[in-house]
Write a protein that binds this DNA or RNA. Sequence first.
DNA 1: GTTAAAATGAACAAAAATGTGCAGAAAAAT
DNA 2: ATTTTTCTGCACATTTTTGTTCATTTTAAC
Lengths: 253, 253
Amino acid sequence: MIREKRFELIRGELAKKGIVEGDDLAARLQVSRATIRRDLDQLEEEGLLIRTHGGAQVVDSLVELPYHSKLVAYMQEKRAIGLCASQMVPEGSVIGCTGGTTVMSVIKYMKGKTVTVVTNAINIAMELASSESTQVIVTGGAMRTRSYELVGHIADRTLDELYMDIALLGIDGLDLVRGISTYTMQEAHTASLYVNHAERVWVVADHTKVGKIAPALIAPIMKVHRLFTDPGLSPELRSELEAIGMEVVIAEM
Amino acid sequence: MIREKRFELIRGELAKKGIVEGDDLAARLQVSRATIRRDLDQLEEEGLLIRTHGGAQVVDSLVELPYHSKLVAYMQEKRAIGLCASQMVPEGSVIGCTGGTTVMSVIKYMKGKTVTVVTNAINIAMELASSESTQVIVTGGAMRTRSYELVGHIADRTLDELYMDIALLGIDGLDLVRGISTYTMQEAHTASLYVNHAERVWVVADHTKVGKIAPALIAPIMKVHRLFTDPGLSPELRSELEAIGMEVVIAEM
DNA sequence: GTTAAAATGAACAAAAATGTGCAGAAAAAT
DNA sequence: ATTTTTCTGCACATTTTTGTTCATTTTAAC
């Protein structure tokens, strides 16, 4: 077993679990603890992980891009939502997802999970390219300028022939009466296909989106089974949503 | 067991597993470790892999860090080929392209041109995402691990309904008798669809690919209208290719 | 706060892999 | 067929990597 092989497995394990134990790795890879320590030291130097006593943990990927993170609103909240939602995805399931920053934060925590991801967003696909265990299917379609989402009849047709366990949607508005919505018609249309071809619909959105209505409607509110949001959601809105049968998951930070 | 045979197996193994062990290869190929070491040295010089203690690993095309870029084989040549080929693309044309580092270097010079790019490689699509004037159509399909290319029936069907002015292909082998070829069957199949749905076929490849045969055939040599390569191409090979009607463009550096 | 268990870093020895020179074998050119 | 060139295997000195030991630090429990 050469070093690079070990590195690969350590990286994989780290992506999957977020934390690795030195003893566990030593046993699994059939090398001494000293070797594992040295491996972890090197990987830390490369910036791939942070050493802890007894093992190592993933470097918070959102910290590595400090100047980008400022550009994204509600960064912390989105990260918490991402972690929380990803943990509730069962291994082996098929997940369809749109683009958007909140969905992206879920995907970041999905690396290493053995799931199939169907997406029309190429940045999501790129993010998962390095994950061995994740099967990625891209819908295809025309790329909207200044966005990474693929839309149009090619995307439609591909989604038409797929069925997913979970549709994971990022949205711009969620309203009790008008349902879920976004800013452009094309994206709304594509998102609605995910809704119609999935067993369950999960929406991820920071609390500012709840109660808002964006121009392009995706689906009625009853289609949404579960909402992941942050603690900023007002208790009244939460109660109203739960009253109509929606499961509201608050991601603690 | 001649050297080229070994190279072929090593490349194949590398494409499949990403990491190879020297001992393993020596046993499999029935040669001494010293020979394997020399083989790996040479393949490293060609930029196909990176030597490590105990073996070698693929050039991590997934990590586009600047220091890795030096390790891309024949960097200078590819840049020259990219510039040269991009200048010969007429405005307004529809170009279909596969993945691969040489094609990528053409695409880098294509930004800002008013062309339509059809591709099954998401890294190509990402590269063009920032270009306002370029219309991008992604075929869709299943993403191959360790590569950015989309393959399978979704990709096939999309390509079936498109027609392109130019098919721009990156290849691993171009031979007078066996035609153009690559390492994996799936990519070869997808590439062949570009050939069949394009008015003209352009191949971009550094001179080391000319005269080589890779295992998976894409198309017969007569289908190729134009080859862009670097000054390293031997005059004999050039004459032979031109004798059968191929246009050979040498990109000066 | 004290103590026991676990993990760490450092030093050193053992093991594995490397590069190089050289002789013989294979292939190519004449 | 013979010469020339290239390639391969082997031996050996060197470098890199790994395992072991042990004093020290950290963690967790009491």
